[in-house]
Design a protein around this nucleic acid. Sequence first.
DNA 1: ATTAGCACTCGAACTCTTGGAGTGCTAAAT
DNA 2: ATTTAGCACTCCAAGAGTTCGAGTGCTAAT
Lengths: 348, 348
Amino acid sequence: MPLDERKKQVLHAIVDDYVSTNDPVGSKALIERHNFNVSSATLRNDMAELEKLGYIEKPHTSAGRIPSDRGYREYVDSLMTVERLTDEEQEEIKSRIDTSIDEVTDLIKNATQTLSETTGFVSLSMSPRLRKSFLTQLKILMIEPGKALVLMVLSAGVVKDKIVRIPSYVTDEQIIKISSSIEKHLTGKPLDEITLITVESSVDNIEIPQPLLKQVIYEAYSAIKQADELNIYLEGEHRMLELPDFSTMGRARELLGTLSDSSMVAGYVNEIAGDDTPNDGSYMIRIGQEITLNGLEDCSFITATYNLTDSISGNIGIIGPKRMEYSKVISQIDFVTTTLNENIKKLN
Amino acid sequence: MPLDERKKQVLHAIVDDYVSTNDPVGSKALIERHNFNVSSATLRNDMAELEKLGYIEKPHTSAGRIPSDRGYREYVDSLMTVERLTDEEQEEIKSRIDTSIDEVTDLIKNATQTLSETTGFVSLSMSPRLRKSFLTQLKILMIEPGKALVLMVLSAGVVKDKIVRIPSYVTDEQIIKISSSIEKHLTGKPLDEITLITVESSVDNIEIPQPLLKQVIYEAYSAIKQADELNIYLEGEHRMLELPDFSTMGRARELLGTLSDSSMVAGYVNEIAGDDTPNDGSYMIRIGQEITLNGLEDCSFITATYNLTDSISGNIGIIGPKRMEYSKVISQIDFVTTTLNENIKKLN
DNA sequence: ATTAGCACTCGAACTCTTGGAGTGCTAAAT
DNA sequence: ATTTAGCACTCCAAGAGTTCGAGTGCTAAT
């Protein structure tokens, strides 16, 4: 049974009021603050109904109501309207984003910081998933005997490198040979199509002792694979302590404890980013219990997608209390992401 | 007036008890827990004296005493004895340190994490100060038109690189020329002796248009300078929330807020690392108000020095509550640092 | 379907009380 | 000159009790 118009308004109002006051909202307060042309008793009936349907709940018998996860979900999906930021707000964000940065990763970091500052929440960004990008250059450079640098340039203009250990008697010439041979065969290949076998077969007819060759190749391969790893960057954890929602030590502790395990968070973000294909290419939301990470039951995740190229993208977003101004936060994320994308384009 | 023997013992006992119980300690409790062969009244007199001298203080009239910053300082400087860790504790630490890591920065990170885990406090490491290290290789590699990678290998075996923008009409050959010319002249020079002028003069007689050359050189120079920047790595901030010392939101907020500004912390650590020349090459301590960072009035800093080479070193240490088991923590830091140094050596 | 009225609930905030651990001081003992 | 026993005093922490107000659900009337 779909909600009738007034019930929708009531739910909308409850979410708005609760978000702004942080107090459970009661029927009387609702009447005072909004122009329902009915009495509080009527609202009480509506609220009882909304509770039965699972949209709102009461912390205890004689308190007002607060939105449940489902209530927030309904609000986000069908009730709210996302407004554009005002010109001032846009200006504010733009001014914080440093346009002089010329390395993509720094650019993304900068946008992430901006996001945390403007929302007041934890922000995060995930490195682009590079499995679809392809190698444009691969060089192995001798650093000193026993130590080499594998340097890769990927299609997105991303540069990755890794120091690898090699047998100390491998010579400069041998490395150069191996390097150019691998490069010749692998250039243009997507990262996820490169396997140990591909790498090995790319150096077929080189007159270098097998075991030695094997080891160098293995190191080169693992360097390539490492370039494909997920990287997450979290920013502004301490801001969570400012929020009344986490003003009890227990909650705060659990939350920051979980966030400190960044690879766990990364895994989760990656998961939800894969789940939804963002409808209009915009944002994905997870609310409260929908989040499977420990200690984030009172949080919401909102992530958007930024693009390095048409096919290579990463995520940027926030983790905030589920009691947040979704409309505003979404438009902030949206604007930051848009600005970020523009700046990335300018770099190419 | 130096403290007489019993007063020293009293102060020692007060610090020990307060650290382990987190309760202000009174004369009776002291008698109960320690073998002073005097009455509580005598201890009361001693305590009054110690208070007059500024070693201890009372939170309020009818509470026990707690050590003042000065009291901790006395304890650390002259009272405590640093014990070796037990074999089990050493084993514990060793097992957490991953010996298979083969990149120095990862090694340091790993040691820092271990330090936070074993102490339960925030740990930190500062990248080595590289100004004294010298260039062993410098290459500029073309990535794509308009984009190049400056790659530096420093004497300590450290590899640094930076993507730089260059005019898009600079050709591969030109870059190679510039690169090898800079490398030839700069190899062997300590970082802090490299100025823009040095770099410029190293490419004196190259037949490349001046303005273009200038820009490439400037970028190369700034890449070199960037390699010399201080980098700090902080780990385990969330653990501070577990401590009773920061169980009030206000303190916790302020603390984490300050720690979130890592460049500020870096600046401070650098400062104190420069202040003291560690006597026996071991650790430096700052207690309570001695720390000039906001919100760290109830903390102590302990840092030690790790060495990449004889002349190149960085810092590793912890930030914990000033109410900590100094003796134990110091030996933990000491052991982690020793282990780290050993592992670094193994890499060379 | 809506509303007025009413009895009932429950937590937040306050006050009050009590108990215990601590102190400083004084006067006697060593 | 130290040390100690004794005592009056202080003050916080914790628990118990009280009050207050915003909320609720239900019923009967509109």
